[in-house]
Simulated assay, not measured.
Amino acid sequence: MDILSVIGLVFALVAILGGSIAKGSGLAALWNLAAFLIVVIGTFAAGFIQTRPKFFAHALKIFPWVLVAPKIDAVETIEKITSWSQIARKEGLLGLESLTEQEPDLFARKGLQLLVDGTEPEAIRNILEVEMESKEHFDIQGAKVFEAMGIYAPTLGIIGAVMGLMAVMQNLADPSQLGAGIAAAFVATIYGIASANLFFLPVGNKLKTIIHARTEHRQMIIEGIISIAEGANPRNIETKLQGYLH
């Protein structure tokens, strides 16, 4: 569980709900059906139009990473790759064959299989880098869905405010409705700006950070597997991969 994400979401609710109460508006002032339809539904509509279905579906799939990120243990991976290199040094590359099916990481498993098959180091690098870059691109497209909605939401908030003010202007003859009408108009602005800056944009950026960490981890795996293929000393491999630790 990413405790910072949880705290951030709680603080976001406190900032908006608590701020409304502290200002004397109350919680009821934050609810407006028209503003919800224009901003929230409109933001998702814009996201649907911009994004291909597979990318939108992937965005929903990786959203839980914000709260529970995929496990990345670089120290454990370095230890595992070092043990592979020791086995390969003693028994040859075919000694790794029994470990291939046991490897839970599909990316590392593919690298092990290439090693066992006797693939040339440069070919291994090319194959794995293509897969790494392809996975990164696909994940980034998912993160960009939230970024895009974070861009659209404030604009739709302004549209909602303008439409609300238009309704107010139509009722100028009845001063009793002006205050409530203007307040309702600005609820749309709150929806747009708050959802963008407290949800959509932070989520998109958090996902990008996680994706970058996963790519860096895969790059480390590639370097380790290439070093094994080149017959490097296990100690040298371990020292080299420790450069990826922060």
Rank of each mutant, 00 (worst) to 15 (best):
A167K: 11
I221M: 14
D139L: 10
M132I: 12
A143F: 03
G224P: 00
I182V: 13
A45V: 08
Y152F: 12
A194P: 02
V39E: 04
L96T: 09
P202V: 01
E238L: 09
I190W: 11
A108K: 13
L156W: 01
P121Q: 12
I3M: 06
S195A: 05
R89Y: 03
L245M: 14
I78Q: 02
I72A: 14
F11Q: 02
G19T: 04
A161G: 10
D117Y: 07
L4R: 11
I226Y: 09
R218T: 08
A108I: 06
A28V: 05
L4M: 12
E101Q: 13
L99H: 15
A232E: 13
K144G: 14
F11G: 07
I221A: 10
F63S: 03
I182D: 05
I38T: 08
P64C: 01
A22N: 06
I226A: 11
V203D: 02
I81V: 10
V75I: 14
Q86T: 08
A213V: 08
A88M: 05
A123V: 14
E120C: 12
K135H: 15
Q102N: 12
E76Y: 08
A59L: 04
V162E: 02
I78R: 04
G181E: 11
T119K: 13
P53Q: 06
I237N: 10
L128W: 02
E223P: 04
A45L: 10
I237Y: 08
H217F: 06
I72W: 07
A184V: 03
A188V: 00
I151T: 15
A196T: 02
P70G: 01
F56G: 01
D105T: 10
K90A: 11
G42C: 02
T209F: 13
A173G: 15
A35N: 15
L13N: 09
L17N: 04
E230M: 08
E97F: 09
T209N: 13
F138H: 13
D2W: 00
E230I: 03
H58A: 10
T209Y: 11
K80G: 04
K240G: 05
G142H: 02
R218L: 08
G111K: 04
A46V: 10
K80L: 08
Q86G: 07
L207N: 05
R214F: 04
K135W: 11
V40A: 05
F36R: 07
G192R: 01
K71V: 04
I62T: 09
P121A: 13
G111S: 04
K110I: 09
L4N: 14
K80R: 14
G19Y: 00
G224R: 01
G118V: 03
S5F: 05
G8M: 07
T82W: 06
N32S: 13
M149I: 09
K71H: 12
L198C: 01
L17A: 10
L27Q: 08
Q113H: 11
